[in-house]
Write a protein that binds this DNA or RNA. Sequence first.
RNA 1: GGUCCGGUGGCAGAAUGGUGAUGUAGCGGACUGCAAAUCCGCGUAUGUGGGUUCGAUUCCCGCCCGGACCUCCA
Length: 464
Amino acid sequence: MSDAPQRSQPTLSLHDSQRRATVPFEPINPEHVTVYYCGPTVYDLAHIGNLRAMLTADVLVRLLRHLYPRVTFVRNITDVDDKITARARANGEDIATLTQRTTQEFHADLAALGVLPPDIEPRATHNIGEMQAMIARLIDNGHAYEAEGHVLFSVGSFAAYGALSGRNPDELEAGARVEVAPYKKAAGDFVLWKPSDADQPGWDSPWGRGRPGWHIECSAMSHRYLGDSFDIHGGGSDLLFPHHENERAQSLCCFPGGRFANYWVHNAMLLVDGEKMSKSLGNFLTIRDVLAQAPAEALRLLLLGAQYRSTLNYTQAGLAEARRTLDRFYRALEAGGVTDAASAAPTDAPMPHGVLEALADDLNTPKAIAELHALADAALAGSHDAAVALRQGAGLMGLLRASPGEWFRGAASEGDDVIDALIAERLAARKARDFARADALRDELQAKGIILEDTREGTSWRRA
RNA sequence: GGUCCGGUGGCAGAAUGGUGAUGUAGCGGACUGCAAAUCCGCGUAUGUGGGUUCGAUUCCCGCCCGGACCUCCA
């Protein structure tokens, strides 16, 4: 209602995968919200599907920071994995070179997209000791066993196995498509530790030189930085099973007093031209592939254009549309007198309530973007307040970070005075009513990718 | 084969047990020397067959179609 206090905060609702319902978010400690996301395995450039998970986390964390006084966001780097070993070998480089380079590329790509860095970004290889401690404890309390140099988690020892992903362990065995290793007691048992040969990365352990299984690292790192129980664990829906199910089993068996994650947030997959991304189809797109053809914010807007739990189809047409939408938003900022970059603006402007309400409703980014359109309408009509609110609301989604000048014209470059000279010449021709000459000059500029806009105040230009 | 999610206008994409947002594309108009931008107006949608209900796009069941997962993919 209009008489509600402006400062009232909406209640955040999130869809919890485990409860399979959208429920009010109640933090363990409202003074300090804790979030863990599964980060990348660093063996290759990140693709736009990876990016969707990172963007979902980014909007979630931005919103949490707006609603709560303190948020700790942990996102790991997986820098030990058999895919890494294989790639390093194929490239003829050592593992550390590959993982360091790929990590830097990952950071650069996310920075280009305006994804805020996590508060803590632990690396798997820096947490081997924590993993071994957990594995030893799981063996001690009867949830894991050693077999032929491997340590395996015994799925049968955990009655709640399958509860997160809604699976029945008996049916899993029947449908398993992977050959069951002979040393497993049960088909569903998964590796906590496995032996390494001389060519594979390995660490000394009570079970011989070896390396961790995939799932244990997230259990170890989330526990180290966030404790037995934390608020939100997120990732792509393809991680729900087995990765998250296994993480949960390990953590709850290792720390029976804790609850592990209270809310599980999973984003849906991204399609490209209606099909799953795959190298064989030739539709595999890295973040860099897309950034070569459109501004980063266009990609960001495109990916936020669908609610995170819906499958999103990436297309070229969609990217182009996102870019035009941003043209409109930046035009609205300019019309409303917001001409500096977001980083230069005061941050105490009120958050538009419609945007906040939409995002608080399980991160309804499409609805929030619709709210931005309403603000843009008002800003285009000349409202400065609306323009300020537009930028503030967009900022909650990491959008409209540039100044309108930067967006339309880029950083000042050497060619700019040439453009200004041609515009001045065209203006003179128009005054002389030599429209043929004026149009020829406009065409000349258009050929250079410069689009002119005549207004009452004069002629402005932008890059196509 | 099993489990789960989804099918809304040309396209993208919200919402809802009671006249279906928003954007984009299209059409008409205003403005402009013409454009560009902006503004005004218009049209078009709930996959399919049943059921519950005064009323279903929404809830339930069947069917069709698409997608995810089924032991190291975000």
